[in-house]
Simulated assay, not measured.
Amino acid sequence: MLTGKQKRYLRSEAHHLDPIFQVGKGGVNDHMLKSISEALEVRELLKVSILTNNTDDKHEVAEELAQGTGAELVQLIGKTVILYKESAENKRIVLPR
């Protein structure tokens, strides 16, 4: 579980990132979760955008992404989800205590 201080730090780190995945009309599926998990292992922190043609609730989509990938939901702002998962082999982000 991330503390408020850690979430603030991760939000500042994610500010300059562009979304690399998009959740469209098809919603969240296993292939997408696998791809996001692999990207999280390499990057640790990433953004996912929820397209306007997705009819699911954005909060449910964000939770589904976080639970499906085993990542922490850092923030849901508008239709952009920020996810963080500590990498086992490519650790680059050092969280404040």
Rank of each mutant, 00 (worst) to 15 (best):
F21D: 02
D30H: 06
G27T: 03
E41F: 05
V61L: 07
L46G: 02
G24E: 03
G24W: 01
R8L: 14
K7Q: 05
G26L: 12
S35D: 10
E63C: 12
H59V: 15
K25G: 06
N53S: 14
V28G: 04
G26T: 07
T3P: 02
L2I: 14
L45R: 05
Q6Y: 03
L40W: 01
K58Q: 13
E38Q: 08
V42H: 09
S37F: 01
P19L: 00
R8D: 15
S49L: 08
A14E: 01
K47N: 04
R11S: 12
E41Y: 03
L17A: 07
G27W: 03
I36D: 00
G26V: 11
E64P: 01
K7W: 00
L46Q: 03
I36N: 00
K7G: 02
V28Y: 00
D57C: 13
G27D: 04
P19C: 02
R11H: 09
P19H: 00
D18L: 15
L45M: 05
E13I: 00
R8Y: 12
E41M: 10
D56Y: 10
I20Y: 00
G26M: 11
P19Q: 02
L17N: 07
L40H: 01
N54L: 07
H15S: 15
M32Y: 02
V48C: 07
D30T: 09
S49M: 09
K7S: 04
H15F: 15
L51I: 08
K5C: 04
M32T: 00
L33F: 05
K34W: 09
L46T: 06
T52A: 12
V28K: 02
S12L: 14
E41N: 07
M32L: 14
